[in-house]
Nucleic acid binder design. Structure first.
Lengths: 225, 225
DNA sequence: TAGAGTTGGATACTGCCGCTGTCCAAGTGG
DNA sequence: CCACTTGGACAGCGGCAGTATCCAACTCTA
């Protein structure tokens, strides 16, 4: 398949495909002439993944390049390759959300952070997530969880680890399913691609469930009016 | 408190506060002279909410204006006011993620959509979420859930409603807690603000838990290497 | 083989968005 | 009294995801 067909089958404008090629999000096609390249099904698959990362996941192009760099790095072992790709996914839309006001506020923020840290520690201990506990100092997901809990605490919502535990257990079941799914693919690259896609697409579903539950509870409490 | 102090206590640059005033995200202060205004604690609170919506929630300024418009509309009943504010929160970062390739792909997408619709229907039926079932045709959250499930299905991940049910139940418990928290505030405006903030800040926490669970499972399966 | 169309490649531009810097005349405060 | 601040207006910036244009070299079709 050549460029025009790739664009047609993927629904992505040719100018945009050229852009992705330039940015290294898409490997160049196989050269079959000085000014002609042939693209395969794997290009189509990759193009769909890129679009999903950017449009569903909301990742900036630079981040996509980083993630795909790990996905494609065949010199890495599977664990590292998968871990690196998943860690490269951004943890929060905008990590610069902290306030930097006067001293009292900074102190407030630190208190919340400390408390959140302790809460997460108790949570992972009660769950027996030993790997997570070992990785805690360097794991972006761990930092992200602490930051989110601290933010909630700062607006006066001191969430307890006991309330989080059931979610955590469920998330672990979800992770098991995701990994099972991932292992149905043959090539390591496809496996990691599948894991990234699943990790990313599951989250909007969770968010939607959360909002639906809010709707239900709102109507139950206050009626439909 | 005057402009300079508001900027200092919130940590938001004065130029930015002026921008928010211009954009209508922040009510003007109380005029105490032809060129002087006084700002109160509610301005500080609102400013923090605006920052949280933009930086933690990733909302564009226009969306923030829309949400706050409902939060502030005292002519609305509480149900409507709350519902409108929550519905105005964006459901997906980039809702334009669909592909529009050739006919075969469109058909594929429709199949996935139909299947997802049925799955969600069975889910809400089994949960007894009657309000959600009634609101389904107009609820953005419902549409969003269907879209997310359809996207997963399209990449070959036909999630069953049984697997979602425990999440949904948990989310309902979460919603109950959120509403309890909301009701600890006196003024309706503060209540709705609290609900919006809680709805928004809970989601990053869930995502972080999901990713931590992935880490744990990855190490359990493939070791730390 | 002629002529229309496509290719990879380079470069410059667009539009949106969240600010940010500058300027101003009118007031304020020590 | 005079430096400073205020509300207000407006232009500009920097980043980002594309998009448009042009090109010479090539390929396909008639």
């Amino acid at each position: 398949m050549r460029l025009a067909e790739l664009g047609e089958r993927s629904g992505v404008p040719i100018a945009t495909i050229k852009y992705y090629l330039r940015e290294g999000l898409l490997a160049p096609g196989e050269r079959i002439g000085p000014r002609t390249s042939e693209y395969g099904e794997e290009h189509l698959r990759r193009l769909r993944l890129v679009r999903a990362l950017i449009h569903v996941g909301g990742l900036p192009v630079a981040k996509v390049r980083e993630v795909l760099g790990f996905v494609d790095d065949e010199s890495l072992g599977r664990t590292i390759r998968l871990g690196a790709a998943l860690w490269a996914l951004p943890q929060e839309p905008h990590p610069d959300g902290a306030s930097e006001g006067d001293a009292s506020q900074d102190a407030e923020a630190d208190d919340a952070h400390e408390a959140a840290l302790g809460e997460v520690d108790r949570l992972t201990a009660s769950l027996g997530w030993e790997a997570v506990r070992q990785l805690a100092p360097i794991s972006p997901s761990h930092a992200s969880l602490v930051a989110a809990m601290a933010a909630l605490r700062r607006i006066g919502y001191p969430w307890r680890s006991e309330l989080l535990a059931p979610h955590a257990e469920l998330m672990h079941q979800v992770a098991v399913l995701e990994f099972d799914f991932m292992e149905t693919f043959d090539s390591a690259t496809e496996q990691v691609e599948a894991a990234v896609a699943a990790a990313l697409l599951f989250e909007p579903m969770l968010r939607a469930l959360h909002r639906l539950a809010q709707e239900e509870e709102s109507v139950r409490r206050y009626g439909m009016s």
